[in-house]
Design a protein around this nucleic acid. Structure first.
Ligand SMILES: [Mn+2]
Ligand SMILES: [Mn+2]
Ligand SMILES: [Zn+2]
Ligand SMILES: [Zn+2]
Lengths: 158, 158
DNA sequence: TCCTTATTGCGACTGGTTTCCATTACCAAC
DNA sequence: GTTGGTAATGGAAACCAGTCGCAATAAGGA
C-alpha cells in the first residue's frame, strides 16, 4: 500500500541490516546515496547520481560511488540495466520489481514490461539444463509504436 | 546442407555486397578478418581475434579491428554476446543461429540454448506494445549443473 | 570516551577504445 | 595498364570509465 511512500526508508533499513551482517558501517554518504537512489524513479548512471548528490550539497567523491554501488547491487536494492555496451546504468528495485526492457533504436525510449510467460519459459529452460538461475537480463531492441507511426517507413533486417 | 562448409565463403560474399552498397572497399585485412571469424566456432574478444590473425601472419593493427568489427555487426555477420560488464565479446552468426545464454557464476561456462516458447512470448509482448523488434539479448546468470553437483551447497538470493 | 578498523578523497594509474594524421591501397574510370 | 580520387590503415596520442594506494577521517562497539 504505502510501499512506495516508504521505499527510501525501507531501503535504508534493508541496507543497514545488510551492512551490519558484514561488519560494514552506515555512513552519511551511504545514507545520502540510498535516499537519492530511491527518490528518483528512473535509470541512472554513476554520473547522474554523482551530479544529483553534489547538487544537493553532498560532498562525497565519485570514488565513493564506485565503491558503494556494487554493495547496493549485492544487497539487492538496485540492479544493472541491460544496455548495448558496457553500461553503467542502474535502477532501484524496491517499488520497482523485476521487469525487462524494450529499447527503441530510433528515439532511445525504454519501455519496461514484465511477462509471466517469459519468466515461466526461462524457468523451464533452466530446469532442463539443471541450471539454478539467480538473475537474468533481457533487452529487446527495435522500433517503438510512436516512431513507427511518425515515419511509416519500415525498418530493415530481422 | 553444406551451409557450414561454405560459411566463410558465404560470409565473405555477404560482406562484399554490404561494403559495395555503402561505397566501401574490400581489403586484404577485411578478408582475413572474415575468414578467421568464421573459422572459429566460438565467442571471441577483440584481442582473441587480433592474436589469432597475427599468429597466422596477418599484419593488421588492432585499430583496424576496432574499426571493422562494428561493420561486421551492422552487416549482420556477427553479433555481440551479452555479458556482465563491458563485454567485448562477439560471435559469428552464419551457421550459428540465434540463441540465448546461461552463464555460470562459478565456473564461467556459457551454455547456449534456444527456446521457441521464449521467442514466442517475446513476439507477443512486442505485438502488445506495437513494438517492432529487431534483435534481443537474453542472459541468465546462475549455477550450472556441474558446479551445483560438485558443491552441494545452495547459492543464496533469487 | 577510547580504540580499532572501515571509509573516504585525491591523485596516480589502468586497460580498453577512439581519434589524428600522414601514408598506402582500392578500384572505377580512362 | 595507368591514373586519380578516396577509403583504409598503422602508430601514437588522447580519452574515459573504473580502480588502486595511501594518508586522513569517522563509525560504533567496548
Ligand atoms: Mn527498467
Ligand atoms: Mn553464443
Ligand atoms: Zn521510438
Ligand atoms: Zn558452472
Amino acid at each position: 500500500m504505502n510501499s512506495k511512500k516508504n521505499a527510501p526508508a525501507d531501503a535504508l533499513d534493508t541496507f543497514a541490516r545488510f551492512l551490519q551482517d558484514r561488519g560494514l558501517r552506515m555512513t552519511r554518504d551511504r545514507r545520502a546515496i540510498i535516499r537519492q537512489v530511491f527518490e528518483v524513479h528512473a535509470h541512472f548512471t554513476m554520473d547522474d547520481l554523482f551530479i544529483a548528490l553534489r547538487l544537493k550539497g553532498e560532498r562525497l567523491s565519485k570514488t565513493t560511488l564506485y565503491r558503494n554501488l556494487p554493495l547496493l547491487v549485492e544487497s539487492g536494492l538496485i540492479r544493472r540495466v541491460p544496455g548495448e555496451s558496457s553500461d553503467g546504468r542502474f535502477e532501484h528495485v524496491l517499488g520497482h520489481p523485476h521487469h525487462d526492457h524494450l529499447i527503441c533504436l530510433e528515439c532511445g525510449r525504454e519501455i519496461e514490461f514484465s511477462c509471466t510467460d517469459l519468466e515461466t519459459a526461462q524457468d523451464n529452460i533452466c530446469r532442463r539444463y539443471g541450471f539454478h538461475p539467480v538473475w537474468h537480463r533481457l533487452g529487446i531492441w527495435g522500433y517503438c509504436r510512436r516512431c513507427r507511426a511518425r515515419r511509416s517507413v519500415k525498418p530493415k533486417e530481422r
